[in-house]
């Protein structure tokens, strides 16, 4: 019994971080219909920035590293949108070309990281050690914090989208670009902003998971693949869908690892994905027609 609960809690904490990676991907797709294949490498980039600041070169405290990393990540996202994505938009075949460009970008970032930091893995020490015991259940304090922080970030994003005027504008762009232009929303600015935001979220997830999964140049593909299974399952463009799907799949992952083995996580995820898509081709919450 307590075994089951521990797996559940582990799954929730994992799910919260997956959620962080996935909502960014979904946000960008929702606003600009861009499927960012470089999302995973940007997750790695976040980890490396923090590693360089905390462990590698500067010995800064983690919080300060995060404070520095956020604007760097945001600027990276905005830069990518401006320099790589935007020039493609005016062409008829932009959908296929943006997939190509972001895949190419993923390989650029990945190989640059490898050249700069080497192919080995890096780690950032957890900012909190030890465990928390509740009755018969023991979980690591770090995972608990990871859960809280991720959930807070996702909550903040949801608040921003639902309650602020600029968040409304982001949703407006995702629902009807022409309509958004007509009410005076600067659509290009929203594209750049959401891209920047999604890179920040992915990078923060990379920093949060660094003590557990380690950082490596190609380490982003795993979380990315998971994020996109989550996003597809939840419905492309739906942040709510990504939220629900992240927890469902993370809990599934916990049970699969415990009962069958870690190698079967991805097959299990894909199986769920195929079954869901067979029933609902646009995922659980995907409603928008592109």
């Amino acid at each position: 019994m307590s075994q089951t609960i521990e797996i559940l809690i582990g799954g929730l904490s994992q799910g919260a971080v997956y959620c962080l990676i996935a909502v960014g991907l979904s946000l960008v797709y929702g606003a600009s219909r861009i499927l960012n294949f470089a999302h995973g490498s940007l997750y790695s980039l976040g980890g490396y920035i923090a590693w360089a600041l905390v462990v590698g070169y500067f010995n800064l405290p983690l919080w300060l590293a995060v404070v520095i990393a956020i604007p760097l990540l945001f600027a990276t996202g905005v830069g990518i949108e401006r320099l790589v994505i935007r020039p493609l938009r005016s062409w008829g075949n932009w959908r296929i070309n943006t997939i190509m460009a972001t895949l190419g970008l993923a390989f650029i970032i990945e190989n640059t990281l490898q050249l700069v930091f080497g192919p080995g893995t890096k780690s950032i020490p957890a900012f909190i050690e030890g465990t928390v015991t509740l009755g018969t259940i023991t979980i690591s304090s770090y995972k608990l914090w990871m859960f809280v922080i991720s959930l807070a970030l996702v909550g903040a994003l949801e608040f921003f989208l639902a309650r602020t005027r600029y968040g409304q504008a982001v949703r407006a762009v995702s629902q009807d670009i022409q309509g958004a232009k007509q009410v005076g929303v600067d659509v290009n600015q929203v594209f750049a902003f959401t891209f920047g935001l999604s890179v920040v979220l992915a990078g923060l997830a990379g920093i949060l998971l660094a003590p557990i999964f380690l950082i490596s140049p190609v380490g982003g593909w795993g979380p990315f693949l998971k994020a996109f299974v989550i996003v597809v399952l939840g419905g492309l463009g739906s942040t709510k869908g990504a939220f629900v799907a992240a927890f469902v799949l993370a809990i599934l992952e916990g049970f699969v690892i415990f009962y069958i083995g870690p190698n079967w996580v991805m097959p299990a995820w894909l199986l769920v994905l195929i079954v869901v898509l067979a029933v609902r081709p646009k995922g659980l919450f995907g409603v928008w027609e592109s």
Binding site: Q168, R171, A172, Q175, D176, Q178, G179, A180, Q182, V287, W288
Partner: peptide, 12 residues
């Protein structure tokens, strides 16, 4: 400008 096809945001 008010568009002929309205251009409302359907999920708002």
């Amino acid at each position: 400008y008010v568009a002929e096809d309205r251009r409302l945001f359907p999920d708002m």
